[in-house]
Simulated assay, not measured.
Amino acid sequence: MRTEHEWTTTPVTAGLLRGALDVEHTERGLLPHRLPASARRQIPDGQLAMAESQPSGVRLAFRSGATAIELDVVATKRVYAGAPTRPDGLYELVVDGRPAGRASVPDGDVLSIDMAAGTMETRPGPVRTVRFTELAGEEKDIEIWLPHDETTRLVALRTDAPVLPAPTGGRRVWLHHGSSISHGSNATAPTGTWPAVAAALGAVEMVNLGFGGGALLDPFTARAIRDTPADLISVKIGINIVNADLMRLRAFGPAVHGFLDTIREGHPTTPLLVVSPLYCPIHENTPGPCAPDISAMREGRLQFISTGDPAETAAGKLTLTVIRDELARIVRQRAATDPHLHHLDGLDLYGAADHAERPLPDGLHPDPATHRHIGERFARLAFGDGGPFAPEHR
């Protein structure tokens, strides 16, 4: 490692970031956002505000001959009342496209969440430093992937060699919107979320607009997608609509049409893939709302249950089965005049047979190995030969 006086400090700016739609300059560092300020002003709940500030898919990208890197951060650690302690978020170093190191920080701001009471409280914490050392000294492309589920303020970047802007262009940009699974819930590393796995296999630049609990057909999210440059777009719709018991079938169809209409205002001919929900037994034929299992929490486990009544589907309450049928119908209807619109059944990514082999540990979210499994399948079905995102569709 070079001596301290040789360190170069590079301002952390939006130009160093990939995967963020906006940044906020705060007294405690640069805060990446995955929704623009115009959308954030319309967010109606703390859950989505928290989720969009968690930098899933966001990474610093630059070129340098540095052998050592330090990144000062303020991380936000989440503590759920009655639930096991969450592991620290991981910062992953990628050099010339290959994994080159992992690090974490032990503390920071603390966000205490009581899911039963629906309350959140934040306690400020310290600035900590992420370090990567003993890197090769030649010029190289460097990415530092931020923790996918840990809000992170970027305070300072230091290297022992100058930093140059990362090369741009050359790879297609894939923008994906979805729920907590797309966000990366239960994945252990930012490059291990299923969209990150699929993006690497598809050789594309990823913008991940997966929001835990927040894929609710919000018009401000549709406008953000509309206004973001992208070569490929996918939207995964359904599970959060059921989780929240947000709407009935009568409202769901027009809301999907409106969401897609808004995206098409900015991307009239961009390949657009509508993905229906993955298999989830608690909601296949039982409506929401979803709730934490209090008895499991007393045992120190996080488990989710559905509290709806299957008989209420006759009155228009939504289940995953109903939503899959409706999404397939909507895409068939629209594809008659939109040849760039495509459909992917979520059961082809994770179905009943997959669940038998790889059950969802908490009833809602896949484990790390299943994230990779889903990402590999998406890459094959979407980016592979004959898929809607295959290079020949450009």
Results as ranks from 00 to 15, higher is better:
H5F: 15
T9M: 07
P11K: 00
L17D: 04
L17W: 12
G19R: 07
L30Y: 12
R34K: 12
L35P: 04
Q42D: 12
P44V: 03
P44D: 10
S64E: 05
G65C: 11
A66Y: 05
T67N: 11
A75E: 02
G82D: 14
A83F: 03
P84Y: 06
T85P: 12
L90Q: 09
L90M: 14
I113M: 08
V127Q: 06
K140R: 14
E143G: 07
H148W: 11
L157K: 08
P162K: 11
R171I: 09
S179D: 15
I181V: 15
A200W: 11
F211I: 04
G213Y: 00
P219Q: 11
F220D: 06
S234F: 03
V235G: 00
G238A: 05
A244S: 11
A244H: 14
A255W: 09
V275G: 08
C280W: 00
A291M: 09
D293T: 13
E299D: 15
D309N: 13
A311N: 07
A314V: 12
V322Y: 02
E326G: 11
A335H: 14
T337G: 13
L341W: 06
L344V: 03
H355G: 01
L360P: 03
G363L: 09
G363R: 14
P368R: 06
G375C: 14
F389P: 02
F389S: 03
E392C: 01
H393M: 13
